[in-house]
Simulated assay, not measured.
Amino acid sequence: MPHKNHNQVPAEIHEQFDLFKKGNGRAFKYFYDFYHRPAYNYVLNLIHNNAVAEEIIDDVFVLLWDNRDRIKDANHLVNFLYLVSRRMAIAHLVSLKKQVESEAAWAIYQYEWATQFDEVEIAKDKILSLIFQHIGNLPPRQKEVFLLSFTQRMDVRSIAKKLGTSEKNVYKHLSRAYDYFTTVFPRNHLVLILLMSAWQ
């Protein structure tokens, strides 16, 4: 999967991106064909499950299409695929933890996963893992609002419109979600959570 600092984007991709932004289905297929295999290999390398990796990548491209208005340029598109693929893979690993029969088996998954990143990336992934472990404790509406903000990078106005509620209610749900996290995360972890909310 291309790294998010990747800057060498062919000119043809920029041309296709302009069509993609306008809702052109063929341009979307162009990006699907171009990035599907590296994205799939990237996720597969994290979770080691062919079928689940394919499902995750299909969902990632659905999100790409649904969020095309928010994608700034061709480089941002690559970054979007990288981050969303990674976050979905992490969510799967957290879910997998509940299914393994022993802490020893889970430790193996953690080790294989962690060794693929440098120290900074490992720190980010650890926080993401903790977030997804605790997010199930949020009330359904709070969880929905938090996930739209945190994983799909939607702003308050967009969330309010999507859910058919007021921006005031969205702020309330986000505030209560972060209040909850203050009770389960150490202070230094909370700083990282806030920083992660600003990651692109």
Rank of each mutant, 00 (worst) to 15 (best):
L174Q: 10
K72C: 04
I13W: 01
R87H: 11
L83A: 06
V156W: 10
F146T: 00
L93I: 14
V120H: 07
N5I: 08
T183V: 05
K72T: 06
D18R: 11
D18V: 08
A104K: 13
L130W: 01
A114E: 14
V78K: 00
F61P: 00
L163C: 01
H36Y: 13
Y40N: 11
K162W: 10
R37D: 11
S102C: 09
Q116S: 03
H36M: 06
Y180C: 03
A177V: 06
V52T: 11
Y30V: 03
L195A: 13
A107I: 04
F20K: 02
K124S: 06
V9A: 03
W65G: 09
F80Y: 15
V170W: 02
P186V: 14
V100Q: 05
V191H: 02
V60E: 01
L63P: 00
A89T: 04
V191Q: 01
V43T: 14
I122V: 10
V43I: 10
E144L: 13
Q152G: 02
E15L: 12
A51K: 09
V78S: 00
Y35Q: 03
R68T: 02
E144N: 08
D33M: 05
F17K: 00
D69V: 10
N5E: 12
N24A: 06
R37N: 13
F117I: 14
E121P: 01
T183E: 11
S129V: 14
V120Y: 05
L148Y: 02
E144T: 09
I108L: 09
W113A: 01
N188A: 12
N67H: 08
R187E: 15
A27L: 07
I47F: 03
T183N: 13
R187L: 15
